[in-house]
Amino acid sequence: MTDLPVPPARFSHRSLSEYVAILLVLALVVSSLAATAPALDKLSRGIARLFAPSGMLMQMFPPDFSRIVPISWKLLETLQMAVAGCFLGLLLAIPFAILATDRLSPHPVVRHTARGVIALFRTVPDLVWAIIFIIIVGLGPAAGVMAIMVDKIGFAGRFFAEAMEETDPGPQDAMRAIGASRLGTIVSSVFPACLPSFTATSLFALEKSVRGSAALGLVGAGGIGVDLKVAFDLFNYDEALAIILMMLVLVIAVEQGSGWIRRKLI
């Protein structure tokens, strides 16, 4: 009778540095929870207040749709801000992405600069961009459009660059060998290969813009967010719920629409 093969150890041996790294991560998680997470008693008291007869949740029902017409116009403005900002952002993300791509960038300095700008646009939250653009162009939807545009350059610029980086270099080499210009090579061989990825990223960017544009009004950058803030400030919780439900319908409609387009195009 032959010996049965011995199964391997359940866990592989780890080095001391790996144990130290695991301990550090655990310490970070525990200390973060201890420093910032709400105390359970406080949380339970807050939830009880929420459900009390005079609490916010009870006052929200039934939602007040009496201002449905002006709210609908504001919702349309929110959608328009999202579409305009997203369109401009996606358009400008393309040159930034080309300059940030290894194979397409004309010079390493340009590439690093473009990557730096994209990273900066992506890192700073859109609410902060909105505040900056309110200072530049004043209160209103224009500041919101600019904030969405910059945020989308950061978001789409990164994904566009990654998509172009991952394309098969063969067709690009063939175009260069034909004697095609740099622009000709990019448009006729890189863009068609990236079309599915570009489409998916653009639709996600639009969904993100619609969700984001609703919040921009909280700092005065136009859209439905202004009405939502006013409703909360005046304790009109039933109207606030109506606004939230209408925003939900808009976001779901955009998500369904973009999902349909994605299925059709990709």
Partner: peptide
Amino acid sequence: RAFRAQVGIVWQRHNLVPRL
């Protein structure tokens, strides 16, 4: 670029643009 235009290349992998 003008010189390369006079030289045709047939590659091992055809290097066409797939989606077009």
